[in-house]
Computed example of a mutant assay.
Amino acid sequence: MAGKLEPYEDRAGKWRFRLKAGNGQVIATGEAYESKSAAQNGIESIKRNAPDAPVVEIEG
């Protein structure tokens, strides 16, 4: 099964989204949003703007 993005409400009452692998493991979590619709907009932004984003090393 493919991974999925899902919005959820955190313990502080903020909305976030998480990326789950096909096995159900959470592999990424988005920032906090004030509403579920804002979190859903974040999901759509990820899908639209980074479908094939490269991995870039940042030296520090």
Rank of each mutant, 00 (worst) to 15 (best):
W15I: 04
A50G: 05
G22V: 02
A38M: 09
I58A: 15
A32Q: 12
A50R: 07
K20Y: 00
Q25T: 15
G60P: 09
T29I: 12
L19M: 10
E44S: 08
L19A: 08
N23V: 05
G42A: 06
G13P: 02
Q40M: 09
D52P: 09
G13S: 00
I58D: 14
I27W: 06
G24H: 12
P54M: 05
K36N: 02
V55C: 10
R48W: 01
I43H: 03
E6T: 11
T29Y: 12
K14M: 11
N41C: 12
V55S: 11
E57Q: 13
E6D: 13
N49H: 10
E44Y: 01
K14V: 03
I46T: 10
K14Y: 11
D10G: 03
A12K: 13
R11Y: 15
K36M: 01
G3I: 03
G60T: 10
A38T: 05
L5P: 00
G3F: 02
A21F: 06
N23F: 01
K14G: 05
K36D: 01
A32L: 07
G60M: 02
N49Q: 10
A2R: 09
D52G: 10
A21P: 15
I43G: 03
I58L: 15
E6H: 11
E9Q: 14
A32C: 07
R48I: 05
E44I: 01
N49I: 05
G60K: 08
K36H: 01
N49M: 12
G24C: 06
M1W: 08
I58R: 15
G24P: 01
W15C: 04
G3H: 09
P7A: 06
A53S: 09
E59S: 15
K14D: 08
A50S: 08
R11P: 15
A39E: 03
L19V: 13
G3P: 09
E31W: 10
S45N: 07
R16Q: 13
S45A: 07
G60Q: 09
K36F: 00
